[in-house]
């Protein structure tokens, strides 16, 4: 039984974090919801209670196209990061034998995460550009005679950059799940005559599910809300929900941006709720 003093000390210890979340997360999100019902003109936002922001947003075919496009980016990025992330985590967890090497190789994967995302996007330009490395190589090898235009400033570039930036979000939780798999289960599967592939399919994949779910939550939410990758890598030729919001902010149409933000938030929360049914995050730490 916790005594009163220890309870009080828990409240004291948690209060700074609670305060910051209240001021900079809860109140701002409520502000967005409130402002999404406000009116605006060219200069300012006007307190009101109207539904025009929503009716305009949801009634516009552009919105639906943008959502479809964003979901496409999210789905493609999710698929690739999952495949690559699972394979990398599997290699690290089951094929690298010494713990030191596991840590070293794991660090090699995580270090780019701690550098600037924008710089990592820019760094694709000399590789993918019209006169970039890839095009020069392809032309020199005689595979194509004209530079490929779709490499940079295209959907391809957006998904490539997303995969480049976020595969780590898959590797870490899946690796974490795999490292907890009792090795004797794998020996048991082997002894029972399972091939490597069968072991992978019926033992490792099911037991890695929590990691896969957490990684998927990260990747999907981050791509759903992204605007800068789409802006930089599509060269302004494609749109995403986040980009639409940032454009509306740029035009000072805050209530419109707020309405888009509310719809985006609901979408993301629905996706996450679905994925959370597969995993209890608190158990995974």
């Amino acid at each position: 039984m916790a005594s009163d003093t220890s309870k009080r000390s828990s409240y004291f210890l948690i209060s700074p974090m609670a305060a910051i979340f209240a001021i900079f997360l809860v109140i701002p999100l409520l502000t967005i919801v409130v402002v999404s019902f406000w009116d605006y003109d060219e200069y300012r936002i006007l307190p009101d209670f109207i539904f025009e922001n929503y009716s305009y947003l949801l009634g516009s075919s552009v919105t639906w196209k943008i959502y479809l496009n964003t979901l496409k980016y999210a789905a493609l990025t999710w698929g690739f990061t999952l495949l690559i992330g699972f394979t990398v985590a599997y290699f690290l967890a089951f094929h690298v034998r010494s713990l030191t090497w596991q840590i070293v190789l794991f660090m090699v994967c995580t270090i780019p995460f701690w550098t600037s995302n924008i710089i990592r996007m820019i760094s694709w330009i000399p590789f993918l550009g019209r006169n970039g490395l890839l095009n020069s190589a392809l032309i020199n090898l005689g595979i194509v005679d004209q530079p490929l235009e779709f490499l940079l400033f295209s959907d391809f570039a957006v998904v490539l950059a997303d995969v480049h930036l976020y595969t780590l979000f898959m590797v870490v939780p899946i690796f974490n799940s795999m490292m907890r798999i009792d090795r004797s289960l794998i020996e048991a599967a082997r002894d029972a005559g399972a091939s490597g592939f069968e072991t992978l399919k019926s033992v490792i994949v099911p037991l890695s599910k929590p990691g896969i779910a957490i990684g998927s939550i990260f990747v999907i939410t981050v791509v759903m809300g992204d605007f800068i990758t789409v802006r930089l890598m599509s060269g302004g030729q494609s749109a995403s929900v986040g980009l639409q919001i940032s454009n509306e902010i740029g035009l000072l149409q805050y209530p419109a941006a707020a309405a888009s933000a509310v719809v985006l938030l609901i979408t993301v929360l629905l996706i996450v709720t679905g994925l959370l049914r597969l995993v209890d995050i608190r158990k995974e730490l």
Binding site: I14, M17, A18, F21, F24, L25, V26, I27, P28, L29, T31, I32, V35, I217, F218, T221, V222, M224, G225, D226, F227, G242, I245, S246, I249, Y254, A257, A258, A261, L264, L265, V268, V272, I281, R282
Partner: peptide
């Protein structure tokens, strides 16, 4: 608090930016 932390992680960053800016 735990769910606020998780929410803080998955709410798109631009929403935090917009919300605080509006506030």
């Amino acid at each position: 608090i735990f769910y606020l932390a998780i929410a803080s992680l998955i709410v798109p960053s631009i929403l935090i930016s917009l919300g605080i800016g509006l506030l």
